[in-house]
């Protein structure tokens, strides 16, 4: 289910003295199964962009197309959008409210038309994917869990609908390094199963490891869009934008400058290690 922005602009508080343009004439197409990282500074329009894709904001101009249909057109069945596009906000744990974990995760399935057995199956699947044992957590109150557990339950609540596109807003902010790894692994597993992932992040390293495509926004405009290795190879521009590139990319650059020739398309840790290995073995290490 491809999603497409067609000359989309968005203006906050239009018609008031506080009018600000958050997004300017943006066009973008995201195909099935992509893993897109969205980078940019606070206020660059990235959260406006993801909210437009999720249909939570209506563009001032232009169209948002899901599977070719304008999601803001009159008569469009919004439940199609809700079933197919899930969004995980920065602090998803704040959306919990039900008396038990099971009910909370099932909230999104209320209007899905699934029968009870199927709903329960989905809830079990989502909770297990998030690393819980369904039977021991189902009857607990989501509100009395620990912070990390709450976040995982909330994400399970979004995944239970089995959306074809999942949007994450700064998913790893506030997680410890181990939690980050586990979480990013989970996202990339979802992606491997065919789910389109769109994730907003400041963290160039984790984007380099997992995202296949990077989009860079600056003051409401799309300024870079391409394969992760291509975007990160423009180190100078990324530094100018104060976004930076991944550590392995920087290390490879430093090595190149010191005469230790490295390929220019290294972005992830694994690539760096294998390139060094190859150089050392191929070049005949003393």
């Amino acid at each position: 289910m491809p999603v497409e922005l067609e000359n989309v602009s968005y203006t906050y508080a239009s018609g008031t003295p506080y009018e600000t343009e958050a997004l300017e004439n943006m066009s973008l197409k995201i195909k099935d199964g992509e893993f897109v990282g969205v980078m940019g500074h606070t206020g660059c329009g990235k959260s406006t962009m993801i909210q437009l894709i999720a249909g939570l904001l209506v563009p001032s101009e232009g169209k948002v197309l899901l599977d070719g249909n304008d999601i803001n057109a009159k008569g469009y069945d919004r439940s199609v959008l809700r079933r197919n596009v899930g969004i995980v906000f920065q602090y998803p744990e704040y959306q919990l409210f039900e008396t038990t974990v099971e009910k909370d995760v099932a909230f999104g399935l209320k209007h899905s038309g699934l029968d009870r057995g199927e709903v329960s199956e989905r809830v079990r699947w989502a909770l297990e994917i998030m690393g819980f044992s369904f039977d021991s957590i189902r009857n607990q109150s989501p509100l009395s869990l620990s912070g990390g557990e709450k976040r995982r339950v909330a994400i399970a609540g979004v995944l239970a609908v089995r959306p074809k596109i999942v949007i994450f807003d700064e998913p790893i902010a506030g997680l410890d390094p181990l939690g980050r790894e586990a979480f990013l692994k989970l996202i990339s597993d979802l992606n491997e199963d065919g789910t389109t992932i769109i994730t907003v992040s400041h963290n160039a390293d984790s984007m380099a490891e997992y995202a296949k495509r990077i989009i860079v926004l600056d003051s409401g405009r799309l300024i870079m869009d391409g394969k992760t290795r291509d975007v990160f190879s423009d180190v100078k521009r990324m530094e100018e934008l104060r976004l930076g590139v991944s550590q392995p990319r920087l290390i490879a650059d430093m090595l190149s400058k010191r005469g230790f020739e490295m390929p220019r398309d290294i972005v992830s840790c694994g690539e760096l290690v294998s390139a060094i290995k190859e150089r050392l073995i191929g070049g005949g290490c003393p």
Binding site: A54, R82, G86, F89, P92, Q95, F97, S112, V158
Partner: peptide, 28 residues
């Protein structure tokens, strides 16, 4: 605003005209 958007994305029907749907939105 954030909570409202998160619940809308999860399928809460704030825009619905039906009184029952509206009442259902209050708790979440």
């Amino acid at each position: 605003d954030m909570i409202k958007k998160a619940q809308t994305a999860r399928g809460a029907r704030f825009e619905s005209r039906s009184l029952r749907h509206k009442a259902e939105c209050v708790i979440p």
